Simulated assay, not measured.
Amino acid sequence: MTDASLPRPVTIITGASRGIGAAIAERLAAEGHDLVLTYRERADEADAVAQRCSAAGAKVLLLQADLGDLDAAANVVPAAIAAFGRVTGLVNNAGITGRIGPFLDAPLEETELLFRVNVLAPIVLTRAAVAHMATDRGGAGGSIVNISSGAAKSGAPNTYIPYAMSKAALNALTTGASKEFGPVGVRVNTVSPGTTRTEIHAAAGRPDAPDERAPGIPMRRPGEAHEMAGAVAYLLSSDASYTSGADIRIAGGN
């Protein structure tokens, strides 16, 4: 929980209309954050998440942004600062997998879009957030959490190697940025979900993938979106004041 005597933290969450992003938004709202939530489509679902967060006491700014458009990505942090006056946290959650299938069948155009959304947009957002937060630039410090995947280390053969590559790049962003910007008050960490029951699998062409993979998970079930949100809340909290460069893996034992 946040200290009621301090200004409320202001956290940007990308891809917050459903799945893990929505679960993170609702958890942070309950813990006293005001929120900037981005979504690409399905405005009705994004609005429903915003209403639930508002009911928990959060002030919420909804931003429609296709993060495959890097100009749109570049507008997110300035819009948040204009609305709230400051940003204390960024959660780079938005991501796409591409179609599930063999590596040789992955269209290059699809992979290019995947890297724009999963890697280049987080770079754009992280640069803007750090420029605002860094104490050597007049900021008050802050915290960035990158939502990666267990695929970053498994490589996801026969499934989605380009997606795994993009998440490995996101892990490298955490490692490098945490070291470069730790001295100026910005902590950067990763949360790496394992197979989680969200719509991302349907978008990749295999809606039953979480249950299909369950026998190979030590806990014999996929994760649920809300089970990922607590780690993000921790990393954004004062309890994690000495935690930077970490990767919290939430994968049922995998």
Score class of each variant (00 low, 15 high):
Gly150Asn: 02
Ser17Asp: 05
Leu120Ser: 03
Ala251Met: 11
Asp247Lys: 04
Leu113Asn: 03
Ala94Ser: 15
Leu63Lys: 00
Asp239Met: 02
Met1Lys: 00
Arg249Ser: 08
Ala30Met: 07
Ala225Asp: 09
Glu31Pro: 00
Ala58Ile: 02
Gly57Met: 02
Leu67Ala: 03
Ala202Met: 06
Leu235Trp: 13
Ala156Asn: 02
Arg40His: 14
Leu35Pro: 09
Arg127Ile: 13
Leu104Phe: 12
Ile123Lys: 09
Leu6Lys: 14
Leu90Arg: 12
Leu61Glu: 05
Pro107Leu: 14
Glu41Gly: 06
Thr97Met: 14
Glu109Gly: 03
Ala246Lys: 11
Asn118Phe: 13
Ile123Cys: 01
Glu41Met: 13
Thr135Gln: 13
Asn189Glu: 02
Ala231Tyr: 00
Val91Tyr: 01
Ala46Lys: 00
Phe181Asp: 12
Ala65Asp: 06
Pro215Val: 11
Gly182His: 06
Thr174Val: 12
Glu212Val: 12
Val117Arg: 11
Gly95Thr: 15
Ala121Tyr: 07
Ala65Arg: 09
Thr97Leu: 15
Lys167Phe: 10
Val117Glu: 10
Ile200Cys: 12
Ala169Lys: 08
Leu104Asn: 13
Ala240His: 14
Glu212His: 13
Ser238Ile: 00
Gly15Ala: 03
Gln64Tyr: 13
Arg27Tyr: 00
Asp211Leu: 04
Thr196Trp: 13
Pro157Arg: 02
Leu37Trp: 12
Ser241Ile: 03
Gly142Glu: 12
Ala46Met: 05
Thr97His: 15
Ala214Arg: 05
Asn75His: 14
Ala251Cys: 15
Met219Val: 03
Val49Thr: 13
Asp71Cys: 08
Gly176Gln: 15
Met228Ile: 14
Gly32Cys: 00
Ala140His: 10
Asp3Val: 00
Val184Ile: 06
Phe181Cys: 13
Ile24Phe: 07
Val119His: 10
Leu170Asn: 09
Thr126Asp: 10
Arg8Cys: 07
Ser244Cys: 15
Val77Glu: 01
Arg42Pro: 00
Gly68Glu: 06
His132Asp: 14
Lys167Gly: 07
Val91Cys: 12
Pro215Thr: 09
Lys59Ile: 02
Ala80Tyr: 11
Thr2Val: 14
Ala30Tyr: 09
Thr196His: 09
Thr198Trp: 10
Arg137Pro: 05
Gly138Cys: 01
Gly19Phe: 06
Arg8Tyr: 07
Tyr234Pro: 05
Ala129Asp: 03
Gly139Tyr: 07
Leu170Pro: 12
Pro102Cys: 12
Pro218His: 09
Thr195Ala: 11
Thr159Gln: 09
Val76Glu: 06
Gly252Asp: 10
Gly150Ala: 05
Ile217Leu: 11
Gly253Thr: 15
Ser244Leu: 04
Gly185Ala: 07
Ala23Asp: 10
Ala134Leu: 01
Pro7Tyr: 10
Arg197Ser: 06
Glu212Ile: 15
Val232Trp: 06
Asn254Gln: 00
Ala229Glu: 06
Gly57Pro: 01
Tyr234Trp: 08
Lys153Gln: 05
Val36Leu: 10
Thr195Pro: 13
Ala80Phe: 15
Arg206Cys: 11
Gly141Leu: 01
Ala82Trp: 08
Val87Arg: 04
Val36Thr: 05
Arg137Asp: 02
Pro210Leu: 13
Lys153Asp: 11
Val76Asn: 12
